[in-house]
Write a protein that binds this DNA or RNA. Structure first.
Lengths: 112, 112
DNA sequence: CAGGATCCGCAAAGATACTG
DNA sequence: CAGTATCTTTGCGGATCCTG
């Protein structure tokens, strides 16, 4: 006789996702990587004029430790580091595109 | 009352979306409203055991001023206020569902 | 019941300087 | 080029008390 199945939803799945992509710049970083594929550190920096090195580094490190992006280091001089979506990160692709489309729609319907 | 801090990514639709739904509880609030339709203030409070009245109020006010939710006040005693998704908020429905599904998948594939 | 008014704490972000 | 290291600041959210 089987044991009763236990419910295991200690946290809400939405909360789970938000905790991983909720950083200030995380979704835009993920989106840039989704669009462009691979980006170097300073390429990402230029995408966000107001971000500081420190903040960008931290957001990237958190995304990496959550397994959403990959960090490829080339041991050469000058240094070269490439960021891209991991497989898990790529599974966010539909969400990222929908967020972009929603924003486009919002802008179109709410002219500044 | 201070508004949530916004990021600056020149003409990036993702930025618009993130600035509107980027609050700590905003996406989960929107998701609850998407699922349940209409919720009163204290009903929402009970959904998030750790949220304070002030924080919930602020998140709701910001969502309202961004046009994502509607606030229906019944002039009676005791007071009664109902929150629900506006038409604009309802257009987030696919995103909210995908975020939920992504979280479910992630939890399923990464057993704690 | 649904908040408003204050005061507060702390992580997250910014500024700046330095380096392998 | 791609970061560290420090220091400072801010802003998001929490705690508590009060009210129509």
């Amino acid at each position: 006789m089987d044991k009763q199945q236990t419910i295991e939803c200690p946290v809400c799945p939405v909360e789970y996702t938000v905790n991983m992509v909720g950083g200030k710049y995380k979704l835009v970083i993920l989106h840039k990587l989704a669009i462009h594929g691979v980006k170097r550190f300073n390429e990402l920096r230029r995408e966000f004029p107001n971000i500081t090195q420190r903040t960008l580094t931290r957001q990237l490190r958190e995304l990496e430790s959550d397994g959403l992006i990959s960090r490829q280091v080339y041991s050469e001089i000058p240094p070269k580091v490439e960021y891209s979506l991991s497989e898990t990160g790529k599974s966010l692709y539909p969400i990222l595109l929908q967020i972009e489309n929603w924003g486009l729609n919002y802008i179109a319907n709410n002219p500044k």
